[in-house]
């Protein structure tokens, strides 16, 4: 009896883990794509996810916006307060999703254009980009704190089917878990086709090898980087929608999840897309199995231990290019 229960928990957690891992994969792949071109950790990636989640939420449920604008008190102008309810357009999940994807992609392009481009044109030190990306992630997070407030929001009920299937042995599967898995496979497959079958895909693969040389071969590098950021933002938004369906939506969601996606990308090998997928699935499984068998408070600890152990044993990750100190 005991063993049977353990067994069904195991199955249950494997399915949950794969579903969570597939959402992580959407985010980690976009992150890894940016890393492979510009070789810096884009900490603002989680911001794109939050943008996508909030656009989707706003289109489905509407927002009550409450902006209290105050300035330091010794100025003659002490501030004003804006308070209104954004009208609720009655759109379905498909339109809301499409809006979220496009919006997040656009924000990603704008971020690159106004924050990263001036820096990368001036210096080749990626640390500056890294710190700027942390600044951007703080900015995006706090814009949402100011405009829509920091409270937790759930997507309206019945946005996604929530039917429960019971498989053999008492294993229950939520339809939305299957849905997120299907969508992740769909978008990752689409990305694969885009990278392998189109001219821009070829250019991106060339740029991942050597951005400068790709530029010399006639690739429009600015446009290429904009496309890469759009794709990354779009994938992050897909992840964001499913994450806000799975948990809830709040401005700090991005930071937590970026760290996870980042760990997944490192485990799989920074800059490698198959690596990001494998790392994400491994991470999702590890998290859910820890939650099922040990304690759900240990989840994050396991995640970070995996990161550190991986870095010590094989810093290049499962699929990463071998790094070596150049002499």
């Amino acid at each position: 009896m005991g063993i049977e229960v353990q067994f069904s928990t195991l199955f249950q957690q494997i399915i949950n883990g794969l579903s969570l891992g597939s959402v992580y994969a959407l985010i980690a792949v976009g992150y890894s794509l940016v890393y492979s071109i510009l070789s810096f950790s884009n900490f603002a990636h989680g911001g794109f996810l939050v943008v996508g989640g909030y656009i989707c939420y706003g289109l489905l449920a509407g927002f009550s916006v409450n902006i209290l604008f105050t300035v330091p008190s010794f100025w003659w102008f002490s501030g004003f307060s804006v308070d209104f309810l954004l009208p609720v357009p009655s759109v379905n999940i498909w339109l809301a999703g499409a809006g979220a994807l496009a919006g997040a992609g656009l924000i990603a392009i704008l971020t690159e254009r106004f924050a990263y481009k001036p820096i990368r044109e001036r210096t080749s030190i990626t640390l500056y980009l890294l710190i700027a990306s942390m600044g951007i992630s703080i900015v995006i997070e706090n814009i949402f704190v100011i405009i829509v407030g920091g409270r937790f929001r759930a997507l309206p009920p019945n946005t996604f089917p929530s039917k429960l299937f019971t498989l053999i042995g008492g294993v229950t599967v939520n339809a939305s878990d299957i849905l997120s898995l299907v969508f992740a496979v769909f978008f990752l497959g689409g990305l694969q086709l885009f990278l392998n079958r189109t001219r821009w895909g070829l250019a991106i693969r060339a740029a991942a090898c050597d951005l400068r040389t790709a530029g010399l071969m006639g690739v429009n590098v600015s446009q290429l980087i904009a496309i890469v950021f759009f794709v990354a933002g779009l994938l992050a938004a897909v992840g964001g929608i499913f994450l806000s369906a799975r948990y809830t939506l709040y401005p700090q969601l991005g930071g937590t999840i970026t760290t996870k996606a980042f760990v997944a990308a490192v485990i799989g090998g920074l800059g490698s897309l198959p690596g990001a997928v494998v790392g994400s699935l491994a991470l999702g499984l590890a998290e859910m199995l820890t939650a099922g068998f040990i304690s759900s408070q240990m989840r994050d600890l396991v995640v970070f231990s995996m990161l550190v152990i991986m870095l010590l044993v094989k810093p290049a990750g499962f699929f990463g290019r071998q790094i070596s100190d150049k002499i």
Binding site: L68, T70, V71, P72, S73, A115, P118, I119, R122, T123, I125, Y128, L129, I131, A132, M134, G135, I136, S137, I138, V139, E141, N142, I143, V145, I146
Partner: peptide
């Protein structure tokens, strides 16, 4: 400390400062 009065905007300003510094004088 100066922006403590407008605590809601403090982190936003901090983030903008980080980005601006990196863009203007890395």
């Amino acid at each position: 400390e100066y922006f403590r009065d407008i605590s809601q905007y403090r982190m936003l300003i901090y983030g903008l400062m980080l980005v601006t510094i990196m863009v203007v004088r890395p």
